[in-house]
Amino acid sequence: MVQRGSKVRILRPESYWFQDVGTVASVDQSGIKYPVIVRFEKVNYSGINTNNFAEDELVEVEA
């Protein structure tokens, strides 16, 4: 279970941040499909630095 402030590695192959490390900004408990919002240092092609992920697409590298 990841929690706010954890450092996580992204396992979603189609993601711009695949294999990159980001910080968990928040975790939604309402039961949505992609409840974990992760914030990154670098921006993607659209200038965005956050994205939603499912918990099984993340691996915690640092608490």
Rank of each mutant, 00 (worst) to 15 (best):
M1Y: 11
M1I: 11
M1W: 15
V2H: 07
V2S: 04
V2P: 09
Q3T: 11
Q3L: 09
R4M: 11
R4C: 12
G5Y: 02
S6L: 07
K7N: 04
K7R: 13
K7G: 02
V8Q: 01
V8M: 00
V8W: 00
V8D: 05
V8L: 00
R9E: 02
R9H: 03
R9C: 12
R9A: 04
R9G: 04
R9Y: 05
R9D: 01
I10L: 05
L11M: 10
R12S: 06
R12M: 04
P13R: 13
P13Q: 13
P13S: 09
P13I: 13
E14L: 09
E14A: 10
S15K: 02
S15Y: 02
Y16M: 02
Y16A: 01
F18Y: 13
Q19H: 09
Q19F: 08
D20G: 05
D20F: 11
D20W: 10
V21I: 13
G22W: 08
G22L: 09
G22A: 01
T23K: 05
T23R: 03
T23C: 12
T23I: 13
V24Q: 00
V24K: 01
V24F: 03
V24A: 02
A25M: 15
A25N: 06
A25F: 11
S26V: 07
S26K: 10
V27D: 01
D28S: 10
D28E: 09
D28V: 08
Q29L: 13
Q29N: 12
S30Y: 06
G31I: 10
G31A: 11
G31V: 08
G31H: 10
I32A: 12
I32N: 10
K33L: 11
K33D: 10
K33Y: 07
Y34W: 09
Y34V: 03
Y34H: 09
Y34D: 03
P35Q: 08
P35F: 13
V36W: 08
I37Q: 14
I37Y: 10
I37M: 15
V38H: 00
V38P: 01
F40N: 00
F40T: 00
F40W: 00
E41S: 09
K42F: 08
K42R: 14
K42Q: 09
N44K: 06
N44T: 07
N44Y: 06
N44H: 12
Y45L: 15
S46L: 15
S46K: 13
S46C: 15
S46E: 15
G47N: 05
G47P: 03
I48K: 12
N49C: 14
T50W: 15
T50Q: 12
T50C: 15
N51F: 11
F53H: 01
F53G: 01
F53V: 00
F53I: 01
F53S: 02
F53W: 03
E55K: 09
E55W: 15
D56A: 08
D56P: 04
D56L: 06
E57S: 03
E57I: 02
E57D: 05
L58H: 01
L58W: 02
L58S: 01
V59P: 01
E60L: 15
E60Q: 12
E60N: 09
E60F: 10
E60D: 05
V61E: 06
V61R: 02
V61N: 03
V61Q: 04
V61W: 06
E62R: 11
E62A: 11
E62G: 11
A63K: 11
A63M: 12
A63G: 12
